[in-house]
Structure formats: C-alpha cells, structure tokens
C-alpha cells in the first residue's frame, strides 16, 4: 500500500509543525525518528486522517484523507503510546471484540478472530481480566491486538514502547517486526528501527534525512549533538569508552 504526502503543511495556532512535507511511503518497515516536538506524531496522525493538513494532501492508496476518512481508518490501524487511553471495554476480550461490532461478520467468525488475535499476542489467559489492571506491557499488546483484529493493511504506531521497560520494549518491537502488515513506527527507541527498510529523521517539521537505519540514526545523533550511545536504552554515556556519532550498530 502506498501512503503519499503531497506538500503537506500543518500548523497549531499559527505555529508550523509540518512544513511542505513530500513523501511516498511504500516500504514494508518505515521508521520515524527525531527530537521532541519535531512533528513525528503530527505526521503519523495525518496518515489516517486524525490530523488533516492545512495545505497539501495525504493519499492512502489514492484516497484523500480529507474525503475518505472512514474507509482509510479501516485500512490504516493506529497504536498510541498510552495504551490505557485506548481501552474502551472493561475486559480484555471485550475490548478486542468491540472493534468488530460494525464489521458485518457473524458472531462465530468474530469470536474466532478475537480468540486468534488474543492467542497470537499472549493474552489468551487474560481473556476475562479487567483490561485496565493488565501490566504496561500486556496493555500495549492488548492495544496492538485490538487494532490488528480488524486486519488493517498498514499499522501506524506512535511511540508504542515509550512507557515500557526493556523487556516489554523488546516484546512489542518483536511483535511489530513479525507482522505481515506494512508498519510506520515513530519512536525514540532507536534500537527498534534497526533492520527497517527505511528511516526518516524529522527536525522542526521537515524530513531532514531519509535512508537506511544506521545512517538515519547517525544523522539524528549528530543533529542532536549527542553520542549515539547516550540515546540507546543501555545508556552509553558515563561508563566505558564513548562511541562516536557513527558508532551505532543495529
């Protein structure tokens, strides 16, 4: 599936957040990195019409997000960083199931899909548990499952691992890697974009780098004026020999 941004600009209260962004995204795995406030979330949100551009347009397989929002949201799933905010129903299985309510599928088919997706995301044993009492990692897996049950063609994730510990970050990152779907992932966890087909670096509303993961991370760390190690979860700053900006090994 091809996501196209054509000269997309967006401003909040007159302050530009996206400036003339031109992109064509069709790779299987696309990363989006950059400083706080650089516009990653805003860009991600334009991909399923949660944010409509002030000028320019966003096309999902040729459909304009401004006119086909409903159809596009069926094809483009979205996962937020705060999984708690996405939970709608009291129990795990019900929360996954509610996404299918208007799918037109029969009850048996719906149940089978819910079961399959719970199984795949390690939640089968928590079917009837209160969703808001799950651990942070389980909750993010639930958010993922709830979106994937509707079988979107693309999954856009806005910092899905930000609130997670190292182990759960690895679990969620692995789950994302294994998806058959196309994935667009905005993140500060630079390790999670290693092995991606394409990584974009954003700065002040613009895409300032577009290329392979290692090069993108090098560009980003140079841009930030920090050591690549300091940005990694294992925290390179402080002890041991400092790696140089290009020292990131995916």
């Amino acid at each position: 599936m091809t996501l196209r941004l054509e000269r997309v600009s967006h401003a909040y209260d007159g302050r530009p957040v996206l400036r003339d962004v031109d992109l064509e995204l069709s790779e299987h795995r696309i990363g989006l990195i950059g400083a706080n406030g650089s516009g990653k979330s805003t860009l991600a949100r334009t991909l399923n019409g949660l944010v409509l551009p002030d000028s320019g347009r966003v096309l999902v397989d040729g459909l304009d997000t401004r006119r086909h929002a409903r159809e596009i949201r069926r094809r483009v799933g979205f996962v937020f960083s705060d999984a708690s905010a996405q939970i709608v129903m009291p129990t795990v299985a019900e929360d996954v199931a509610i996404g299918l309510r208007r799918s037109g599928l029969g009850a048996a088919e719906q149940r089978a899909r819910v079961e399959a997706v719970l199984e795949r995301h390690g939640l089968a044993g928590h079917r009837d548990h209160p969703a808001h009492l799950l651990s942070g990692g389980q909750r993010q897996m639930l958010a993922l499952a709830s979106v994937l049950v509707t079988e979107p063609e693309v999954l856009v994730c806005d910092e899905p691992t930000t609130l997670l510990d190292l182990r759960n970050t690895a679990v969620v990152a692995q789950a994302l890697r294994e998806l058959p779907q196309q994935v667009v992932l905005a993140t500060h966890h630079l390790d999670t974009v290693s092995g991606f087909d394409r990584v974009l670096v954003m700065d002040d509303g613009r895409v300032v780098f577009d290329g392979a993961p290692a090069d993108a991370v090098a560009h980003y760390t140079a841009l930030m004026g920090v050591d690549a190690g300091a940005a990694r979860p294992d925290g390179g700053a402080g002890s041991g020999p400092r790696r140089s900006g290009g020292g990131y090994r995916p």
Binding site: L50, R74, F80, D82, Q86, V88, I98, R102, V147, T150
Partner: peptide, 15 residues
C-alpha cells in the same frame, strides 16, 4: 486529557 485521548482512540479504531 484522558477523555481526549480516548476520543481519538475511538476515532482511530473506527468505533
């Protein structure tokens, strides 16, 4: 703020 986030999630999930 939570209601805002929930509303956005509902929209994104097509509910």
């Amino acid at each position: 703020r939570s209601a805002d986030a929930l509303g956005e999630a509902l929209t994104a999930r097509g509910i």
